[in-house]
């Protein structure tokens, strides 16, 4: 009896498997395609994708929001612009302006005093001050010219939707929405956070104890932590009470884009991480390529020998 050279040759898969193979391959391909599509659906660079602000108020969504039951007038007051009623149908261009630029968000403090006080201490309020200064300095003849800052200084309404945001959401839900909201203006920070342990655990895996944006940068305060090491360390110690003196030097928002910024305080650390990472990547690539070639060639030779060897 002639022995089959390779045990697999003796076995023919049942017809049902043979017929299903192309379909299975297609399913695997589609799976990869859908992963790729899912990765590509974040629209960075488009400001404020978290929600659209519009003069039209969708009352069915408003009725599900946190502010349902509050009269329009409680926030919007008299709804009069100059001598005319608002919105003024005589001024068609009016409705094309951004509603958020028109509303006085100072009114939010009537209920959200603490949030307002905190936000006034933070970087967003500082950005607003600077924007107003720029507007005052600007030539009055060029009034109405667009500010050249990449994003408008955010007010309450840029991060929160007074009409539609819901209350009673879980920490994970709020955190995931927050990542999108903050990420609209801070795309590099969002991307690097999502690659860091914190973002992976908190956003991807829904681990409620891991930190979201505001857990480090302050809810409503919103401050940068890169300048003062003391502030950063105290932020770390909210969750890591035993944090050592260099703990705040761990790079959370690791991005090689920072290497272009010579003044970035973490640039030296990022450079070292980058070089070490490159070296280890090169090391494993060389090893894997070498071993894979060895295994592949050896297997070919063995099969070749087995097929040629007289029984």
């Amino acid at each position: 009896m002639k022995h089959s050279v390779f045990p697999l040759n003796r076995w023919t898969p049942p017809a049902v498997i043979r017929r299903a193979l192309p379909a299975m391959g297609l399913v695997v391909l589609l799976q990869f395609a859908s992963i790729g599509a899912a990765r590509g659906d974040t629209d960075w660079g488009k400001p404020f994708p978290a929600f659209e602000s519009n003069w039209f108020v969708d009352m069915s969504r408003f009725s599900e929001g946190a502010h349902t039951g509050i009269d329009c007038g409680e926030c919007h007051m008299e709804m009069v612009e100059g001598t005319k009623k608002h919105p003024d149908p005589e001024a068609p261009g009016y409705l094309k302006t951004d509603a958020r630029e028109r509303f006085d968000y100072g009114r939010c403090k009537r209920c959200h005093l603490k949030a307002r006080e905190r936000s006034l201490e933070g970087a967003h309020a500082e950005a607003m001050k600077q924007q107003q200064q720029r507007k005052r300095k600007a030539d009055p003849t060029e009034a109405g010219q667009e500010d050249d800052a990449p994003y408008p200084a955010p007010t309450c309404g840029h991060c929160h939707s007074a009409h539609y945001d819901r209350s009673q959401r879980s920490r994970v839900e709020v955190g995931r929405a927050m990542t999108e909201t903050c990420g609209a203006c801070h795309p590099v920070e969002k991307a690097t956070y999502l690659e860091n342990y914190h973002g992976r655990a908190a956003v991807d895996l829904g681990h409620a104890e891991a930190a979201y944006c505001t857990d480090c940068h302050g809810a409503h305060t919103c401050i940068s932590l890169k300048k003062e090491a003391e502030t950063a360390l105290s932020a770390c110690r909210r969750c890591h009470p035993d944090a050592g003196k260099n703990f705040a030097d761990i790079v959370i928002h690791y991005s090689t884009q920072r290497l272009a910024d010579d003044d970035h305080p973490k640039r030296p650390a990022i450079l070292r991480i980058y070089v070490a990472g490159l070296v280890s990547l090169a090391f494993i690539s060389i090893l894997l390529i070498g071993f894979y070639s060895h295994s592949f060639l050896l297997m070919l030779r063995k099969i070749h020998d087995k097929l040629r060897r007289p029984e």
């Binding site: 342990y197 890591h240 035993d242 944090a243 050592g244 003196k245 260099n246 703990f247 705040a248 030097d249 761990i250 790079v251 690791y254 650390a269 990022i270 070292r272 991480i273 070490a276 990472g277």
Partner: peptide, 17 residues
């Protein structure tokens, strides 16, 4: 990381990662 960052620079944790 808390204990090790007391004796090592912070980026050592990133490199370890």
């Amino acid at each position: 990381p808390e204990a090790f960052s007391a004796v090592l620079p912070g980026y050592a944790i990133n490199i370890a990662n």
